[in-house]
Write a protein that binds this DNA or RNA. Structure first.
Lengths: 150, 150
DNA sequence: ACAGTACATTAGAACGATTATAAACTGTTG
DNA sequence: CAACAGTTTATAATCGTTCTAATGTACTGT
């Protein structure tokens, strides 16, 4: 339920701050089921990814992991709510889930909808206006839309 | 086809830079049909709006303008392609069409999905990173997500 | 270990926004 | 007026996502 944006102790390799899928699930209080463990492995082993539900479902199929699409959606949402993932809504239909939960921004390559991370310190956003009436700031998304030139 | 982001000569009231729906259509080379004229009036008379296709369809119904939903979609896309509107994709399902085509950003009030304009000079974005490989910059969207606090 | 219960997974249906289709219409041109 | 190019329309189809209700699995206390 609560969001977590902390910087981890970062034991082990820089590539996999804390590699153990089980440890992640424990840490956010999700029962380590077969499906969740498998999906966590697919998501968090290897570098940062921007992935859709359908894509993850496909990856699971490829890896011979039996998971229903509904469970993929459920799991992605739980991970998002636990702060393990960040949801990025950019294009028309689809949602991307970003395994990079640190503060950062995105290039969005149209029209194929590819996402590329931008470190937060590559963009200088200063002087935010005050939020309207009875609202409170959640987060700032900077999306730099680019198109293929070649 | 070509996008227009020019500042208009701004004849007449500041409220309606150039009020005539017919003039707008002529200017971008769209045939001034009954439906397009009516929709243009609904969109461009009165201040800046963020509107969905369904909402515009509803407004047309209210104004006793007979237009099908398909035509609303077609027209919104044509207006967008002509630079009369800007499409803003932010929430899960829906697309907003913004009658303010000048450079600006948005507050997005979750969870009800209300949009509020932010003048471009209220946000300071400096030092953009260079776009990836064979891509060219299209535009920069800054979305400040806020939630109801009260 | 076992029962009990709370939580998870699943297939499939349902949903909402959008897009495609194909027929009917409008307006313009020769 | 006939032909034509562009428009509009109702409807069906599609896409990603969410819901539902049945079944399965994991943790708790004993």
């Amino acid at each position: 339920m609560a969001h977590r944006h902390d910087s981890e102790p970062n034991t082990g390799t820089a590539q996999r701050p804390f590699a153990d899928a089980l440890a992640r699930l424990k840490e956010v209080g999700l029962r380590p089921t077969r499906q969740r463990l498998a999906l966590a492995k697919l998501l968090f082993d290897g570098g940062d990814q921007h992935i859709t539900a359908e894509q993850l479902h496909g990856m699971a199929r490829n890896a011979s992991v039996k998971v229903s699409l509904a469970t993929v959606y459920n799991t992605l949402h739980q991970f998002r709510d636990s702060g393990l993932l960040r949801e990025v809504v950019i294009g028309q239909g689809r949602s991307y889930f970003d395994t990079n939960i640190h503060d950062h921004h995105h290039f969005f390559v149209e029209p194929m909808g590819q996402l590329v991370d931008i470190p937060v310190d590559s963009v200088e956003v200063g002087q935010l206006p005050t939020p309207p009436d009875g609202t409170v700031l959640d987060r700032v998304d900077v999306i730099i839309r680019v198109t293929r030139s070649a």
